[in-house]
Nucleic acid binder design. Sequence first.
DNA 1: CAAAAAGTGTAGCTATTGCTACATTTAACA
DNA 2: TGTTAAATGTAGCAATAGCTACACTTTTTG
Lengths: 155, 155
Amino acid sequence: MLPTAKKKAAQVAVKLPAELTQARRFGKTRSAQSGALLEDYVELIDDLLTTNGEARPTDVARRFGVSHATAIKTIVRLKREGLATGRPYRGVFLTPEGQKLAARVRARHRLVVDVLLALGVPAEAAEADAEGIEHHVSEASLRAFAQFLASRGQS
Amino acid sequence: MLPTAKKKAAQVAVKLPAELTQARRFGKTRSAQSGALLEDYVELIDDLLTTNGEARPTDVARRFGVSHATAIKTIVRLKREGLATGRPYRGVFLTPEGQKLAARVRARHRLVVDVLLALGVPAEAAEADAEGIEHHVSEASLRAFAQFLASRGQS
DNA sequence: CAAAAAGTGTAGCTATTGCTACATTTAACA
DNA sequence: TGTTAAATGTAGCAATAGCTACACTTTTTG
């Protein structure tokens, strides 16, 4: 144990609730990381399919700035989780579940960007920051964002 | 190559700028992940030092909901990066650099929470979401947030 | 003051997400 | 059409961040 603070500090009163709350938040934030990557991939694949009619691992890799091997590995995981399909050398497609996720992610992304813009964040920074922020916004916050934009739009 | 879309889709015009921009954003978001953990640790250690007069690995572990071994491993990394100090079995302390980082992180956290509250996000969700959001907010956004709060406070 | 409890540290495992290097398949074109 | 170039896929390596299990200090306490 630590001698410097002696036995006193060890007690620290009964702040268990605060600890548990923070621990829960922390764990949630950390575990959300893995899902964030899948969301980004699904969103981009959906975009590529809509824009180009096809989604190739190489395109995904280039857009994300990673090696093609990394992109393929993640796409394999997407397929394993039932979000994507496709046969070898034949491009990637989204399952219905993947398409639903893509739509949800896209709507959320737009909402976050719009809120940042409404707050006065420059367009370039708003887009960049939204990329990281969007994966950490709860449903409660999304509802508040939508309401804020609605009320502001009517003013 | 993909036969389905034939040679046409392979050209996809010259949208290099967009690709590069997204790639840069993506890479930045991903590499910021490692720093996020260090920021969280520094912030908590600073809090423990201020509140209890000491910061023990076990306390850090309990607050974050991880094993003590995990906490210690990260603290070792903190020391390796010059943010923390301390001798074995003698608790953790922050270097001047670590203290500066803690102050910056704390101010940013407060700003994000305040903005979320101003947007109408419930207090509980604001705190939880800020935990994940704060690591992805650029300086430009922080400035906009501060200005937004100032203008709103004067109304 | 000795035993028990608590805290600290180390070793070794897993999973994720990057990478490079190499092999294979498909498409483009001379 | 057959060669070359591009895309795709696979294997193996590294770092991060988590875990359990075990070993070792330090503090508490009987």
